[in-house]
Design a protein around this nucleic acid. Structure first.
Lengths: 99, 99
DNA sequence: ATCGCTGTTCGTTAAATTACGAACAAAGAT
DNA sequence: ATCTTTGTTCGTAATTTAACGAACAGCGAT
């Protein structure tokens, strides 16, 4: 039996979200974005002692996973939680942890 | 400021658990273990079309992250959820997702 | 004592992740 | 038109992850 028929779509999605959350810096970013509405990449760059390019990569991962979204507010980019997917992730983990 | 003082211990732990959950097969295993009390590696090996050694690696990752535990029941090994750490992970995700 | 069954460890390979600095691109300000 | 600011992309390197089959180890049964 192919693996595709064994693993459910929910499990795949949950794993996708979990993977994006699977790094301390990304958890930090996500938590920050839940506590304040939004933030600019530059704000994070000032706080976090990592290269801008590394930060950009982490933001891209979070964006690709669908957990955050970026809105151009030239010359900056404003990042916020992607509410829709956040709710999906929340629901998946709720179910998973039997909440 | 060193990274260690910026990322909280909670964020690090949550990332650790999330990372372990960040693979479809590991999500499948975890979900199975929440629905039935325990299972043997052999049961999983029959269901999942992956090499025994690969399965063993995934189980080890889950064990190292503290989400499951194995109990020898010769000649098999019985795997169960590690209730204590499961509760911790659950609590971390609850807080994180504002549940 | 050795055979069989279970599951881990070893050795290897390919791919993905994490990180950096340098170079680049976009767009408003001078 | 050029400068400045912001953030991404490129190129690179080191590490980790994921996967496999073969070899090994533990232990109960023969």
């Amino acid at each position: 039996m192919p693996i595709k028929d064994i693993i459910t779509e929910e499990q795949r999605m949950a794993a996708r979200y979990a993977k994006a959350m699977g790094h301390p810096i990304r958890m930090y970013i996500l938590e920050l974005l839940t506590k304040q509405a939004c933030c600019y990449s530059g704000d994070l760059s000032e706080i976090l002692p990592i290269a801008k390019s590394t930060l950009s990569q982490h933001l891209k991962e979070l964006k690709d996973a669908g957990l955050i979204q970026g809105e151009i507010e030239a010359p900056k980019i404003k990042y916020c939680i992607n509410r829709e997917n956040w709710a999906k992730a929340k629901q998946l983990f709720q179910t998973f942890y039997g909440i």
